[in-house]
């Protein structure tokens, strides 16, 4: 027990929570925007891989870090545009197209990596984002290390959540996006195009997912590995449900999830890790996500038109 208390009191534990949560926050906001507009985006896992690769590759080729983030975003928006085109105007199955986009984006990233670096055994490194020193706050003795030793990309993630929440709930654009996911007929009655709103939401959301992936290669680690996204995209889909499609609650979910993840990593180093095999610890994040889905299933407030294609003129 004292070991757990020690972990909870260490500043590095709290810093790790924010770090682990960052990619999830970006990608969860991206998925949330898609789903609020009525489109389930199962391309998320692959788009995160593509973002992780594109951002890293741009920086490896000599671009500044923020240009790398932009490159990741563009890659994500590209795959998002494909997803949007197939699921919105053509109304194809969002399950099938999403899984197809995940396969395509993942394979494309791996193919491009192999083309760019045919014969490397040790993945080359870039100089990633460094922790941002915030005057005064970062210098507070324990708190500074725990909460204020993050990279700019982490703060951008929190800002993204705030902006998403604001735009969705306080602006006409957000109202249009939400209405496209709840009652598309009403949107058309207002003279707006459901198709355009949904496509825009999917493209923007996919861009955010890719930035989430890029966080892995440009802030959390400094190299691109195969299978580095490792199911994070699917976890984000669970987080959207857990957050009942609300940005604030989803952010809370991501932090809670990251807390458990940071805890299990540290518990592996303790006496408990001697008894319990490490695979059990690694299962915890996935099992927690399933548990979250089960717990929230009763009060899920699913957007009414989620996964329902809209074809103008249909009744």
């Amino acid at each position: 027990m004292t070991e757990i208390v020690d972990i909870l009191l260490s500043a590095s534990f709290w810093a790790a929570i924010l770090r682990i949560a960052s990619p999830l926050i970006f990608a969860t906001m991206g998925e949330l925007i898609c789903e609020r507009a009525g489109v389930l985006n199962l391309g998320i896992e692959g788009i995160m891989v593509a973002g992780a690769f594109a951002g890293w590759m741009a920086v490896y080729a000599g671009a500044p870090l923020w240009v790398g983030v932009a490159a990741a975003m563009c890659a994500g928006m590209g795959f998002g545009a494909m997803h949007a085109l197939l699921t919105v105007p053509f109304g194809l199955s969002q399950h099938v197209v999403g899984l197809g986009i995940t396969m395509l984006a993942t394979a494309a990233a791996y193919y491009a990596y192999r083309l760019a670096l045919p014969e490397v055994t040790n993945p080359p490194r870039i100089t990633p984002f460094q922790p941002l020193h915030i005057p005064v706050l970062s210098d507070i003795s324990w708190l500074g290390q725990a909460l204020f030793s993050q990279t700019a990309l982490t703060w951008a993630g929190f800002a993204t959540c705030g902006i998403t929440a604001f735009v969705l709930s306080r602006t006409p654009l957000g109202l249009a996006v939400r209405a496209a996911g709840e009652n598309p007929q009403a949107v058309e009655a207002q003279g707006l195009s459901v198709g355009a709103i949904r496509m825009g939401a999917v493209i923007v959301g996919s861009g955010l997912m890719a930035v989430g992936g890029a966080f892995l290669t440009m802030s959390a680690f400094s190299s691109f590995f195969f299978e580095m996204v490792n199911g994070r995209g699917w976890i984000c889909i669970a987080l959207v449900v857990f957050g009942t499609w609300k940005p604030g609650k989803a952010l809370l979910g991501a932090l809670l999830f990251a807390g458990f993840d940071a805890l299990q990593i540290r518990l592996q180093q303790t006496g408990l890790g001697q008894i319990v095999p490490y695979q059990v610890f690694l299962m915890i994040p996935y099992l927690l996500s399933i548990l979250a889905l089960v717990l929230m299933s009763r009060r899920a407030e699913v957007p009414a038109a989620l996964m329902t294609p809209f074809n103008r003129g249909d009744r």
Binding site: N230, G231, I237, V241, L293
Partner: peptide
Amino acid sequence: LGVDEVVTTLLLNF
């Protein structure tokens, strides 16, 4: 319970 099977089956793979 109405839990979406896409995500649960995906996560069970891991």
